[in-house]
Simulated assay, not measured.
Amino acid sequence: MLIVLFGCNYICSAEPLAGTKRLDWEGDIASRLIDSADAFLLKKIEETLAKNELDQPDRAELARILGVVDKRVAASSHLEVLSKVAESDDFVVHEIRWEAFGDVYGEGLWLAPPNAKESVIVIPDADQTPEEIAGFDDKLPMVYQTAREYAAGGLNVFVPVLINRNLGPHKISNREYLYRPAFELGRHLIGYEIQKVLALVDRLGAELVGIHGHGEGGMLALFSAAIDDRIPKATVSGYSGPDADLWQEPAERNVFGLLKQFDLASLKKMIAPRDLKILAHPPGPQVLIEQKKSRG
C-alpha cells in the first residue's frame, strides 16, 4: 500500500513535459475532443475545395495521354480543294484535304455558302459519312444532317471523315485495328483524329465560331475544346462524356489514366467560360459489343 501511494504521489506532482501543459478541461472531455476533431477536418475540407476551385486541369497532360503530341504542319499550308461534288441553292460542296502532321492528312467535305465569312467544324459519328450529314441522300433522318443545317444558315462547314467501325479481314473493327498499334507507340486513334480537327482550327483562325460533333465526333469535339481554348463554342450530341462505365465502351475509347483527372466535370471546367452544350438528342450510336469478339 505504501508503494502504491508513493507512486501516485510522484505521478501527481510530476512537472509537465516541455512544450505541454497540464490538461485542466472540465465536463465531457470526450465530446470536446470530437468537436475539435470535427472542426479541424471541416477546415481542411474547405481548404481543399478552395484549392480545387483555383486549380485547372492540365491541358498538356490531357493532350499527352490522348496522343496529341506530334507537331502539326504550319497553318500556312492551305486547304487543298480536290473537286466539286455537289451544288444546291444554298451552298456548294467541295471535297478537300489538308495536312495535319507528318505524312498524315485530314480529308472531308467543305460546304461553302456564297459570301460566308464564319466557319464551323462538324464531326460525324464514325458510322456516318460526311456526305450523309450533308444531306446527300435519305440514309439519315433530318435531325442528324447537322452539316446541311449549318450551311443553310450561311456558315462555311468543314466535315472531316473518321475511321469507321466496319469489320475488316482482321476480324476487329477498323478503329480498334488502328488503336492497338497506336497505343504501343504512345499514340492514340483519338489523338490522330483530334490532330486533324486542330489542323483545321489552325487554318480557320478567327473565322471559327464553333465545333459540333455527334457520337464519336461528339467525343472528339469535347476533347478538342478542352485541349484548345481557341475553339469558342462546342456542341456535343450522342456522347455524354467519359465516366465510370468507360470499360464497357468500344476498346478504341480506352485511354490510360483518363478518369484520374479528366472526367466530364473536369472537361467542363477546362472549357469554361466558353460555351459548351451537351445535347440529349439525337441519341448516340448503339455499338454492339459481343462477348469474346471485338469491342470496337
Rank of each mutant, 00 (worst) to 15 (best):
236 V>W: 00
262 F>R: 09
54 L>A: 11
105 Y>W: 12
17 L>R: 10
259 L>C: 07
120 V>M: 04
148 R>M: 12
81 V>K: 15
129 T>I: 07
19 G>L: 04
254 N>T: 08
276 L>P: 09
285 P>E: 15
158 F>M: 01
46 E>S: 10
169 P>I: 11
264 L>K: 05
133 I>E: 00
99 E>D: 14
8 C>D: 04
170 H>N: 14
65 I>D: 03
84 K>I: 06
18 A>W: 05
3 I>Q: 10
133 I>N: 01
263 D>C: 01
268 K>C: 01
200 L>M: 14
264 L>R: 09
75 A>G: 09
211 I>W: 06
112 A>S: 12
1 M>K: 04
7 G>V: 15
288 L>G: 09
255 V>S: 08
294 S>Y: 07
201 V>N: 06
138 D>Y: 00
137 D>Y: 01
257 G>T: 03
279 L>Y: 02
132 E>K: 03
56 Q>F: 11
108 G>S: 03
123 I>T: 11
241 G>I: 02
156 N>F: 03
204 L>M: 08
35 D>G: 04
32 R>H: 00
289 I>K: 15
278 I>V: 15
136 F>S: 02
16 P>Y: 06
63 A>Y: 00
245 D>I: 05
280 A>W: 08
187 R>T: 03
4 V>M: 10
296 G>F: 10
194 I>N: 00
99 E>W: 08
120 V>A: 01
40 F>Y: 00
120 V>Y: 05
18 A>F: 09
130 P>L: 14
153 G>V: 09
92 V>W: 11
172 I>T: 11
120 V>K: 01
206 A>D: 13
179 Y>Q: 14
143 V>I: 13
1 M>T: 12
247 W>G: 04
266 S>L: 05
274 R>E: 10
23 L>P: 13
174 N>C: 02
173 S>P: 07
175 R>I: 01
